[in-house]
């Protein structure tokens, strides 16, 4: 059973050539898929289009069989498709606690929400220590943790993660990906993880999809991709 399916997806900005042209992919339920590719490959555009932030020129997006194509971003989120966007998506004017509560408002009633927030504090101890700190005082690692915790709080069926390692120290990246791997294994969460940090991403994922110029150029088990030097040189630049 596929948790997330999209096909014929074409997305572009303005009147220019499409960034993504007729892209399709099936992501199996409970799997972690790494979406790899160099700068400009279309990873961010793809994830934003799946979340409904960029209008698609054509194509359909299905979540657990339900058609999301015509839904607004907030309704896609409420259907179980969460995106943690690239960079620091924390609302910096709100505190850590407010950011977390905001993530669970539509999902949980007051008491369950409190429990869910506490669960996230247990999962991310550094956030627990900074509950009442304003968002703008957080470090890059803390912000990324908060963004991930906030998305997990709403118990999505499919989580789209855009470059969680961007600008983070290697240790912070390892910690973040560790929590992600453990959570996915525990809850059966489906994850589509866009990363430039190929080693990190392939250590979490079981399947890797390589994008180049908006098209899929490779779709293989993560271990094969990690072991294929030719592919790495050609598309991933190392």
């Amino acid at each position: 059973m596929s948790a997330l399916v999209f096909h014929d997806l074409t997305v572009g900005y303005g009147g220019g050539a499409p960034v993504i042209d007729g892209l399709g992919l099936e992501v199996a339920e409970g799997s972690v898929v790494a979406l790899l590719g160099a700068n400009g490959a279309g990873k961010t555009t793809l994830l934003r289009a799946l979340a409904g932030l960029e209008p698609a020129r054509s194509g359909r997006v299905l979540l657990g069989g339900r058609d999301l194509t015509r839904m607004s971003t907030e309704d896609r989120v409420r259907s179980g498709l969460s995106l943690v966007p690239e960079g620091r998506s924390v609302v910096v004017e709100l505190t850590v606690d407010e950011n977390l509560r905001l993530g669970g408002l539509w999902r949980h009633r007051a008491r369950a929400r409190k429990a869910a927030v506490e669960e996230m504090y247990a999962l991310f101890p550094p956030l627990d220590r900074r509950r009442h700190a304003a968002g703008h005082t957080l470090s890059g690692g803390e912000r990324q943790m908060l963004a991930l915790a906030r998305a997990l709080l709403a118990r999505p069926e499919v989580l789209l993660l855009d470059e969680p390692s961007l600008g983070l120290a290697p240790q912070a990246t390892a910690q973040l990906l560790g929590v992600l791997r453990a959570t996915a294994a525990r809850t059966g969460l489906t994850v589509l993880l866009a990363e430039q940090n190929v080693t990190g991403a392939l250590s979490v994922a079981r399947r890797g999809v390589v994008l180049a110029l908006g098209a899929v150029v490779a779709d293989r088990p993560a271990a094969d991709l990690a072991a294929d030097p030719a592919l790495r040189h050609a598309y991933l630049g190392f």
Binding site: A51, L53, S72, E74, V77, R78, V84, E93, W106, A154
Partner: peptide, 10 residues
Amino acid sequence: FAPETSRLLG
């Protein structure tokens, strides 16, 4: 403060 992030949080 952050309309796009808010929409992503439902």
